[in-house]
Structure formats: structure tokens, C-alpha cells
Nucleic acid binder design. Structure first.
Length: 591
RNA sequence: GCGCCUGUAGCUCAGUUGGAUCAGAGCGUCGGUCUACGGAACCGAAGGCCGCAGGUUCGAGUCCUGCCAGGCGCACCA
């Protein structure tokens, strides 16, 4: 929906400047297209409404002083495509071109935003850059409740998905369930032990099992469903570790499904939905076995064998990951005959490629970053050998403080602060805004006591307040008989007319500039995989609105001024709501 | 020892991927503002050699190198 042919949005204006620049350079006899320049809103009002470094960037190739090129560009643009938009221009500093735009341009820009409504900036990604993308995140093994660390990745990943989709990508959100392997075995054994304990038998939870109390609750649920049917079998074993596989399997499977239900509920409360729940265990079933493994795992082994990348050593089967930059080769099949986690992970990514994703993103915690080189190597080893299609994003950890001291969490000890605890304490909106407010590259300091104590001054309320305030103003306007102004703005939004011909004041101008940046912010957030940019932007937009609001009354006698300001309110309201939604935060109409 | 991330105001963090007073925001502290549409707001002050030292160029918080400090990793665990 983005049209780059209208000068009343920044992208369109940039295109018209590019055209003028090309003309200037052509006159100077420069071959080829101009170097990419930046067009942005300067931080200082004196520097105009928009400013570009186009002359600076192209001066070297043109062999002329930057200021001279800027002057020529300004003249050519203001006389040509910029005729109605340019009030005046200025060549500044080493060669910046500062553009001072007319009130008419600002009104036009605002009108365009109103027409776009809650879709302003949607589809900002050019068609050729849109892809079918799979984003996998959280992906924790289903052995216990989600903790605040997971909440960060969940919030980050979900926001990234929303922003990708908004910008134009076709996004699939995926949760990989690690329900095979040793950890699940321990989990099943632990649950069996708790089950027996609840029924009066003396079976200990394995030392390296899951000690958390939540297992008692799960055991009770299990008893409610299955009764004492398995008590004899469990109590007969000398200890939980030596339980027969078929008995453990019952607890493993039931427990997994129960925990996954908890995940769904918790993530649902956090507003983090998933399209696909991919089970590791499912990778081992179906089709003809290869090297003793069926399903996707067998296919992966066959593929790697065909590339001549497997070998046996000390009873284990290894993959030559060193061929692709890893420090050492890695085991795929242990000497015991069991698959490693690495093997199923390879099979899993192979399957993702099979499912036709052009681009795949995995979001991992920093504690897994040592795993990156081997995963990259394995992915490169698999046909069609396109490592750039797999992107591994490493998110830094959450540092939990309690009483000013670092708190260490351990799921096996059962000593954790859960996502539900956090949401219960400060609410979903505050939690999500907090968790997604910082770059994923930096460790997040989370002082729970402080978060609870200060939740009422969480920055999220500043942004939400701006939205609620606008809703309130518009309500009041209607109550006082101002439906006419609202109706006129509706007509502008429908594209039926323009905004009235009023002068645009400095605060109004600033607010329009900020609003106009939104599509660029969305693009930058996609480009850098950085939802926190939307977070930062929303703070600036809310501030800009509050300043405008303080200075400019919306409900005034002059109907034209009123309509224009209602338009400004409406556009701000829409963009605030859209931006908040991209972060999974609500935009309340009153607080 | 090797690898990844981080080091900006008292605290928590931005800084549009090299641009102009670029030293920024929020919180905290101190002081102001509206008898009008929501004061969860607005305005102002104090507070920083952007970890340290070199380098690259018209120009560096941003890029390169070397140190220093913190976090996280370096399994036939996941």
C-alpha cells in the first residue's frame, strides 16, 4: 500500500529529491546512479523540516564542492517536483541541504496519514524484499513453568513477528518442543516418583531430576485422571531411574501434554500466539529407517551421508562440521546408539527448509551461543547449502535482582520466578513494554521489587495515557456538539477532501514530523531485528503529542483550526495504537 | 586460554547502522506552569573525558587495533 509517488510522505519526497539529484549529476557529466543519501528529520528546528546529506555523499564522485551541489540540488528540486512543497531551502555546514516545507505540504502529509489510518506504514517493505519467514522462539523443553527469562524471548520474538508481518513479510511463528532425550526422561521419572509419593509409596525423585513443587500439582492432576493404575508398577522399581521404559513413557507423555497446556495458557495471557508447535519426538517417526533412524532424522542422515560428511569414531557417528568453520567435529549418534540433540536439531532445520521457508530465524538465549557455529555448519552442510537462509539471533539474558542482590534461578531446584508471577505482579502491558524496551544485545536488569513498586510509573502508561487522552478529547468534542469536525476528518480519511487551509504552528509541525517517521521506524525495526526501536519511538511520539496538546487547544471556536487539530489527534491516536499493538501492548480508551 | 555480548548522567537505557551543538530520554533530586479539551501532563536546573590508549578521514559515541572491566559460553547435556 505504500505509494512512493506522492511527495506528501517522506519516501515520496525522497524519491523526488533523488530524481532531481540525478539531473544535477547528469549535468555535471557523472555516470551512473547517485550514491544513496539520507533524508531525515533533523533534531533542531533551525535545520528545517527535512534535511539531506545527498550533496555530501556525492561530492567526491562529482568532483565539485558539496555546498555547490547542494545549492544546485535545492534550486532544481524547488523549481521542479518540490514546487508546491518547498517554502525555501538552505545550504548548511559542510554541504547539508535543509528543506523548509510549506504548510500545504504538512497538511497534505497529515491527510495522507489519515487516509492510511491504522495501516500507516503497513507493507512498508518493498515487494521484492518480502519473504516467507519462519521465526522460532521460546522453544523450551516442556518440563516446567516458563520463567522471566523466557518472557523476554517470548516478548521479543512476538514483537518481531508482529513487526515483520506488518512490514510485509509472510510470517510463521513456531515453537520447537524438545520432547525427546534425557531431560524428558528425567522429567518422566520425576513425575512418576511424585505420583507414587502422593499415593503413599516411597519413591525418591532422582538427584538430577526435577525437584520443583509444581510436579506435585501435576501428580495430583494425573491421579485425578488415571487413579492408582500405575502405582504398583512404579513402586515395584528400586528407584525412579530404573523404571521400565513403557511406564516412564506414560508419565513423560502425559506430563509433556500437561506442561504444554500450561505453556499455551501462560503465553496466551502474555499475548504470544504460535502457529506451529513442532515436536522433536515427531522427527523420529515415519518413512524407511536410515542408519536405524526413521522420519526426518533418517532423511537428514541420508542427506549428510550423500555429501560424504559422516564418519565413525570410537563407536559414535560424527559430522564433519569443521569443514564449515566449526572448532571440532560433532557427534550425531552416540556410542550408545542414541541420537544427540544436535542430530534432531539438524533434522528439524532440514524439515523447515522442506516446508518452503525462504528465511529462517531462530531466537536463542545467550547461554546457547556456543552452539551457533555447529548449527551454522550443519545447515551449510545440508542441501541446498545456503547458510544465509538461517539467521541465529542471540538474545542476552535477564539478570534478576531481588533485594538488590542477584538471584539465580534453577528450574530443577524449582527456584524460579515465573512468567505468571511477573504478569500477576505488574500486568501484561507493563511487563511486555518493559521486556521489549531494551536492545536484545544487552543484558536486561530486572529488579522485581522495583518493578512492582514502580509499575504505576512504567513508561508504558505515559504512552497509553497519550492515547487515552486523545480518546477523551474526541469524546468531549462530540459531547459539546463538535460532530461536524469529526465528520469532516472522516471525509478526509475517506479521501474525499483535503484538510482546511490553516496555518501550521511549530508544535503541530513537530508532531507531523514525528508521525511521518513511523514507516521508517517500522522498517528500521525489521532491518535491525530491533522491536525496541518501536518502543523508543512511541515514547517520543507520546511526548510530541503531549507538547502539542499543552500548547494547542483542539476544541476552539474557529472550525477550520478545530478540524485540522482533530485530524492531528486522530492520526496520533491511530499510530499510537498501531505501535503499541506491534509490541503486544493494549491501547486503552480510558485509564 | 579461546569465542560471543556489553561498558554513555546517581540508577535503567536510547543514540536512525560515519553527520551539523551529538552529549540524549525516563526514573531519582531541586525549582517552576494551567481557575479552559484528562496534572499519569508541560517547562527549567543540577548531573557525563561516551571504560582506557592509539588509528582510519572533511567529520568517530558510532568503524579498525590493543588493553581494562563485567556477563555468557567452550560435552557422546539440552
Amino acid at each position: 500500500m505504500p505509494s512512493h509517488d506522492d511527495i506528501h510522505d517522506v519516501a515520496g519526497l525522497a524519491a523526488s529529491l533523488d530524481a532531481a539529484l540525478a539531473g544535477v549529476l547528469a549535468e555535471l557529466g557523472v555516470e551512473g546512479p547517485p550514491a544513496a543519501a539520507e533524508l531525515g528529520v533533523p533534531s533542531r528546528r533551525e535545520h528545517g523540516d527535512l534535511t539531506t546529506n545527498a550533496a555530501l555523499v556525492n561530492a567526491k564522485r562529482a568532483g565539485r564542492p558539496p555546498r555547490e551541489i547542494a545549492q544546485a540540488l535545492g534550486e532544481r528540486w524547488s523549481a521542479g517536483p518540490g514546487a508546491g512543497a518547498c517554502a525555501r531551502f538552505e545550504v548548511a555546514g559542510p554541504g547539508f541541504l535543509n528543506l523548509f516545507l510549506t504548510d500545504a505540504w504538512h497538511r497534505g502529509a497529515l491527510a495522507r496519514m489519515l487516509v492510511a489510518g491504522s495501516h500507516y506504514g503497513r507493507g512498508a517493505l518493498p515487494a521484492e524484499r518480502r519473504q516467507k519467514v519462519n521465526i522460532e522462539f521460546v522453544s523450551v523443553n516442556p518440563t516446567g513453568p516458563l520463567h522471566v527469562g523466557h518472557a523476554r524471548y517470548a516478548s521479543y520474538g512476538d514483537a518481531l513477528c508482529r513487526i515483520f508481518a506488518y512490514a510485509g513479510h509472510d510470517v510463521t511463528r513456531e515453537f520447537y518442543v524438545n520432547d525427546a532425550g534425557t531431560q524428558m526422561l528425567r522429567f518422566g521419572q520425576s513425575l512418576a516418583a511424585r505420583y507414587a509419593q502422593r499415593l503413599g509409596a516411597d519413591v525418591a525423585v532422582p538427584d538430577d531430576g526435577y525437584q520443583g513443587e509444581y510436579l506435585l500439582g501435576l501428580a495430583d492432576e494425573f491421579i485425578a485422571e488415571a487413579g492408582e493404575r500405575y502405582l504398583e508398577a512404579v513402586a515395584a522399581a528400586p528407584d525412579a531411574l530404573s523404571l521400565p521404559a513403557d511406564v516412564v513413557a506414560v508419565f513423560k507423555t502425559w506430563g509433556r501434554d500437561a506442561v504444554l497446556e500450561l505453556f499455551r495458557a501462560t503465553l496466551g495471557r502474555l499475548r504470544v500466539p504460535f502457529d506451529v508447535w513442532a515436536h522433536e519426538s515427531a522427527l523420529y517417526t515415519g518413512g524407511e529407517p536410515y542408519r536405524g533412524f526413521a522420519g526426518e532424522v533418517g532423511k537428514a542422515l541420508a542427506d549428510l551421508d550423500a555429501e560424504d560428511l559422516l564418519y565413525e569414531h570410537e563407536g559414535a557417528v560424527w559430522l564433519k562440521t569443521t569443514r564449515f568453520g566449526d572448532d571440532k567435529d560433532r557427534v550425531l549418534i552416540r556410542s550408545s546408539g542414541e541420537a544427540t540433540y544436535f542430530l534432531s536439531d539438524i533434522a528439524y532445520h532440514r524439515d523447515k527448509m522442506d516446508r518452503g521457508f525462504e528465511h529462517m530465524i531462530d531466537i536463542w538465549g545467550a547461554d546457547h551461543h556456543g552452539y551457533v557455529p555447529r548449527m551454522k555448519a550443519a545447515f551449510t552442510a545440508l542441501p541446498p547449502h545456503q547458510p544465509e537462509r538461517l539467521e541465529l539471533i542471540i538474545g542476552q539474558l535477564v539478570n534478576l535482582l531481588e533485594g538488590g542482590a542477584a538471584k539465580r534461578m534453577s528450574k530443577r531446584r524449582g527456584d524460579i520466578v515465573t512468567v505468571d508471577d511477573l504478569v500477576e505482579a505488574i500486568g501484561v502491558d507493563a511487563a511486555r513494554f518493559l521486556l521489549v524496551g531494551r536492545s536484545q544485545d544487552t543484558t536486561l536488569e530486572l529488579d522485581l521489587d522495583l518493578a512492582v513498586e514502580q509499575s504505576s510509573q512504567n513508561p508504558v502508561y505515559y504512552v497509553q495515557y497519550a492515547h487515552a487522552r486523545i480518546c477523551s478529547v474526541l469524546r468531549t468534542l462530540v459531547e459539546r456538539g463538535g460532530e461536524g469536525a469529526v465528520a469532516l476528518v472522516d471525509e478526509v480519511a475517506a479521501g474525499a477532501r483535503g484538510l482546511p487551509d490553516v496555518a501550521v504552528g511549530p508544535e503541530e509541525r513537530d508532531l507531523i514530523h514525528t508521525l511521518a517517521r513511523f514507516p521508517d521506524v517500522v522498517l528500521a525495526a525489521v532491518e535491525h531485528r530491533a522491536p525496541h526501536r518501536v518502543h523508543t519511538y512511541l515514547g517520543e511520539l507520546a511526548a510530541g503529542f503531549h507538547v502539542f496538546y499543552r500548547q494547542c487547544r483542539v476544541i476552539v471556536d474557529d472550525p477550520e483550526v478545530s478540524v485540522f487539530r482533530v485530524g492531528l489527534c486522530r492520526a496520533s491516536q491511530r499510530i499510537l495504537a498501531t505501535g503499541l499493538d506491534l509490541l503486544g501492548v493494549s491501547a486503552p480508551e480510558q485509564m
